[in-house]
């Protein structure tokens, strides 16, 4: 049974059709990568799944719930978390608060104004644990907006995974990082998504082929192939549409 299932999803912006009938099934526990040239609609697809945009037509099911018209917070509460391509953190709060806020809903605090956070020891320990995972425990009280770029990306990941969501979507998690930073980040991603379902958009093919169990290739709003890495590498259509171009430029 698929954990996430897209059926003929379409999205128009005015006259332009950005996503033209995408169908895709993601199995529980799988690490799925979406690749494709710039402007193929990868980020738009992420926004559709995570609830930022409404679909024009088609259905998206997450754990047997139709989510295509739900708001981001409703989708998130079902157990789907995501990160962003452009760093999207709570800049004026410190690192610890960033992570703790990300934990609040899943720990059942909802909109409470009667719990004092300082006294919620279990919550605070969980937050510290996430900080250790993303190796930012030393920066706990540092304003998030003043972290170095790679650290902000790590925090971005931390916010996404903190709630313990079953499905995690990462939008270009290593974009803009140096080689060694990217290696560290991949290690981190592997560790924190253990036993969870992962969908990621990434341009770095080494990382994609290293991490993913299956890969979907999105070109001009359509998925032209979904398969395991070996078959994708060998697929002539994919090579023509995308990989060839990358091979040349690389």
């Amino acid at each position: 049974m698929a954990i996430l299932s897209l059926k003929d999803v379409r999205k128009n912006f005015g006259e332009t059709e950005i996503i033209r009938g995408v169908s895709l099934d993601i199995e529980p526990g799988e690490k799925h990568a979406i690749i494709g040239p710039n402007g193929a609609g990868k980020s738009t697809l992420f926004h559709l799944i995570s609830g930022l945009f409404n679909v024009t037509s088609g259905t998206i099911e997450f754990k047997q719930n139709e989510i295509q018209n739900k708001t981001p917070y409703e989708v998130n509460r079902l157990g789907l978390a995501r990160s962003f391509q452009v760093t999207n953190i709570f800049a004026r709060m410190n690192v610890f608060e960033n992570v703790r806020c990300a934990l609040l809903w899943s720990c059942g605090y909802r909109y409470s104004f009667w719990h004092l956070l300082g006294k919620q020891h279990e919550l605070n320990e969980k937050a510290m644990h996430v900080l250790e995972q993303i190796r930012l425990q030393d920066k706990a009280l540092f304003p998030a907006g003043e972290l170095a770029y790679a650290q902000q990306r790590a925090l971005e990941l931390g916010i996404a995974i903190a709630s313990g969501a079953e499905l995690i979507m990462l939008d270009e998690p290593v974009a803009g990082m140096s080689h060694s930073e990217a290696e560290n980040a991949v290690e981190l991603i592997r560790k924190i998504t253990e036993g969870k379902t992962l969908i990621m958009v990434e341009h770095d093919m080494n990382i994609v082929f290293d991490v993913a169990d299956r890969i979907s290739v999105l070109v001009y709003g359509e998925i032209i192939a979904t398969d395991n890495p070996e078959n994708i590498r060998a697929n002539p259509r994919v090579q023509e549409a995308y990989l060839g171009e990358v091979a040349v430029s690389a």
């Binding site: 917070y73 509460r77 999207n88």
Partner: peptide, 12 residues
């Protein structure tokens, strides 16, 4: 700080 991100951690 970031109303958009807040929605992605479960809060309206």
């Amino acid at each position: 700080d970031n109303p958009e991100r807040a929605e992605f951690i479960g809060y309206s």
